[in-house]
Design a protein around this nucleic acid. Structure first.
Length: 490
RNA sequence: GCUCCCGUAGUGUAGUGGCCAAUCAUGCAGGCCUCUCGAGCCUGCGACACGGGUUCAAAUCCCGUCGGGAGCACCA
């Protein structure tokens, strides 16, 4: 028998995203529909990446649609921040659409729905209406004649009603077993001025109307949305069916639980206002701006979400896994330096001169070395070491890439340069020469570590560095007076 | 209360009836390495929620239980 037949066949492991169904010759048309209430955060990035990946894979069009049909939730600067974030994350957007430019279209469709008997005008008390619906009871307006609906429609537009007094309701099935799917409002009065349109409009669509209308008129073929929209999809399907439109493929992905970063736009906004946060790129926030500042590469975020995929399972976001992908990207190019936090001054005796060198990039020695040439003044050579490593401790230590020292009775004595010391149990620590620069390292919790950084960092130019034995960091400021860096991860 | 969705190692993921005593990544533990709490190499740890059924055969199909999530707004 041929040997290959004896071997166990391993099933091919699927790479990348699962294929999309029913892709036509012109590819796909997909959308990302953010509410412009603030900049994008890590949660948004999932659907952005997924859409972008599919449009790249199949060709077609990626539309970003600003869903600003609730003036109270609009943060005007977001109209500019979102495209910036899309660019940073590396998404290729073919078209931007703003819903507040399309009110007339929503009115037109709503009017058609009213005339075809699939909707009604209702001025019931909101609470009573909801209560009736919960018990499968139709409100008196549900079956009123078209003339009456048209009359109320006209009065809504002419200003006879105040906010909250009337709404345009789409009929579904008042007896539907799923209470979430019984008749729903689709147009309501909003008096608050719109950041882009001022007081031009008073009648605002609710998302189920505007989304259905736009998904149709923008020609969407496939829509990715969170599982929390499942019922909205069912509601919108009523509109599609009433209008005789072809329904795009709606694909629902599971909820993502993200811990360890602030994602609530309102909390972030408030915190920035009152000074709790330094801005939208405060490292404690989960915004893309904050991640950028922390040295997280968009490619790592992309890889992470592609790996997670589009399943309906709810998942736990893993910073560890994201960092692992990021590390893979930055590790080869992050220049190595020593940063000593909480430095302890050490006076090494027993040597007049100590020299050493260390590669700037361990895997690319051709990129050069940091060289150390320390000379004694009045019999001592001064270096600084991390308080947590040497504070109050004794024994044999290896100053990485320099020499061994023996700490005894609080004094440091030169102990040769034999690497065998490591085998004998000498703890490897990092250190910094006497002429080092002040350094500040901003940690993800918002705290700052202060310490010393070796001068060689001034020769470097890369954005990302690795402070050996501490982790990767992004350099924000580099100058003769010192450096400021933001911690990324180990 | 009603309705919908989901349930593979710590985390994410592959797997749609036999090739699964279950894939890959990450994590963790140990080892190697003339020097990092980084990288690389090697070894190990670790999962089909549970119970029935269908079948010669089930992670994969059916039913039930349990567990998780979502919705029932004139927010998105």
């Amino acid at each position: 028998m041929a040997p290959e037949l004896l071997e166990k066949k391993k099933a091919e492991r699927r790479e990348g995203l699962p294929p999309l169904e029913d892709v036509g010759g012109n590819g796909v048309v997909m959308r990302f529909a953010p509410n412009p209430s603030g900049p994008l955060h890590i949660g948004h990035s999932r659907v952005v990446i997924l859409n972008d990946e599919y449009v790249r894979k199949y060709g077609g069009k990626f539309i970003v649609r600003m869903e600003d049909t609730n003036p109270a939730k609009v943060y005007p600067e977001a109209y500019d921040m979102i495209p910036e974030d899309m660019d940073w994350i590396g998404a290729k957007v073919h078209e931007y659409v703003i819903q507040s430019d399309r009110f007339d279209l929503y009115y037109k469709v709503a009017r058609e729905l009213l005339e075809s008997g699939h909707a009604y005008m209702c001025d019931c008390d909101q609470d009573e209406w909801r209560e009736k619906k919960a018990h499968k009871i139709a409100c008196p307006h549900r079956d009123q004649p078209l003339e009456k609906n048209l009359e109320m429609w006209g009065r809504m537009f002419s200003g006879d009603y105040a906010e909250g007094e009337v709404s345009f309701v789409i009929k579904t099935d008042i007896n539907h077993p799923n209470p979430a799917l019984r008749d729903f409002s689709a147009l309501r009065i909003v008096e608050e001025p719109h950041p882009r349109k001022g007081t031009k409009y008073r009648i605002y669509p609710l998302m189920n109307l505007s989304v259905a209308v736009d998904d149709h008129y923008l020609g969407l073929t496939h829509v990715l949305r969170g599982k929390d929209h499942q019922n909205n999809t069912f509601r919108q399907e009523y509109i599609f069916n009433y209008m005789g439109w072809k329904i795009p493929h709606y694909i629902h992905y599971g909820r993502v639980k993200i811990e360890g970063a602030q994602l609530s736009t309102s909390v972030m906004k408030e915190g920035i206002m009152d000074g709790t946060y330094t801005g939208w790129d405060d490292v404690r926030l989960g915004t893309l701006r904050a991640l950028k500042r922390r040295g997280i590469r968009p490619e790592a975020i992309r890889k992470y979400w592609v790996e997670v995929g589009v399943k309906q399972v709810d998942i736990q976001f893993s910073w560890e896994n994201l960092f692992a992908y990021n590390r893979e990207i930055i590790e080869p190019e992050a220049e190595r330096y020593f940063f000593v936090a909480d430095p302890v001054r050490m006076e090494i005796t027993g040597a007049e001169r100590i020299t050493g060198e260390a590669p700037i990039l361990p895997n690319r020695p051709e990129n050069g070395y940091r060289t150390y040439n320390l000379k004694a003044t009045e019999g001592v050579i001064v270096v600084y070491a991390p308080g947590k490593d040497v504070g109050g401790k004794e024994g044999l230590f290896r100053l990485k890439d320099l020499c061994n020292i023996e700490i005894k009775n609080g004094r440091a004595i030169f102990a040769g340069n034999d690497l065998a010391a490591i085998k004998k149990g000498a703890k490897i620590i990092h250190w910094t020469p006497a002429d080092s620069l002040p350094g500040e390292l901003l940690m993800p919790e918002g705290t700052k570590l202060t310490g010393l950084v070796e001068r060689g960092i001034l020769q470097g130019s890369g954005e990302m560095v690795q402070f050996e034995r501490m982790g990767f960091a992004r350099i924000e400021k580099r100058g003769k007076k010192g450096i400021k860096a933001v911690f990324a991860h180990r």
